[in-house]
Simulated assay, not measured.
Amino acid sequence: MAVAIRIRNHSIIDIFWGPGFVLVAAVSYWASTGAGGDDVRRTVMLALTAIWGLRLGAYIGNRNRGHGQDPRYTAIMRHRTGSLVGFLVRKIYGLQGVLLLVISLPVQLAMYEPRPLGVLGVFGIAVWLVGFLFEAVGDAQLARFKKDPANAGLIMARGLWAWTRHPNYFGDACVWTGLWLLSLGHPAGLVAVLSPAVMTTLLVRYSGKALLEKGMRRRRGAAFDDYVARTSGFFPLPPRR
Score class of each variant (00 low, 15 high):
E113Q: 15
G131K: 05
V89D: 08
N64S: 15
D172M: 01
L56M: 10
L211T: 12
E135H: 02
V127K: 11
R220I: 03
H186Y: 11
L181W: 09
R219G: 07
I103L: 10
R240I: 01
Y29A: 11
A47E: 08
R63W: 06
A110N: 12
C174M: 15
A222F: 03
V3M: 13
L237T: 14
P71F: 04
C174I: 02
V85K: 13
I13F: 11
V191I: 15
L101S: 08
L54C: 12
I76C: 01
A35C: 05
A150K: 15
R55K: 07
G18K: 00
V198H: 04
A26F: 12
L202T: 02
G66Y: 01
I51G: 00
V22F: 08
R205G: 14
G20R: 00
F132C: 01
I125F: 12
D139T: 08
P167D: 14
L181Y: 05
W163N: 04
V137G: 02
Y112H: 13
A35I: 00
S83P: 06
T201K: 00
P239M: 07
M111G: 10
T164V: 06
G159R: 08
D38W: 07
L179R: 10
L184H: 12
G121S: 09
L190A: 14
R241C: 00
I155A: 01
V198Y: 09
H79P: 00
N62A: 15
L133N: 05
H79I: 00
P196Y: 04
L203R: 03
A150T: 15
V107C: 10
L105S: 15
E135L: 03
S28V: 03
K209P: 04
R72A: 03
G131W: 07
P196G: 08
V137K: 07
T164Q: 04
P238C: 10
Q141R: 09
T33D: 15
G66P: 03
Y73V: 04
L101K: 04
H166L: 13
S28K: 08
R90V: 03
D225V: 00
R78F: 02
I60S: 08
N9I: 01
P71I: 13
H79S: 10
G131V: 09
L120T: 11
R65W: 12
L56T: 07
G97W: 12
I15W: 05
R115W: 02
D225Y: 00
V127S: 10
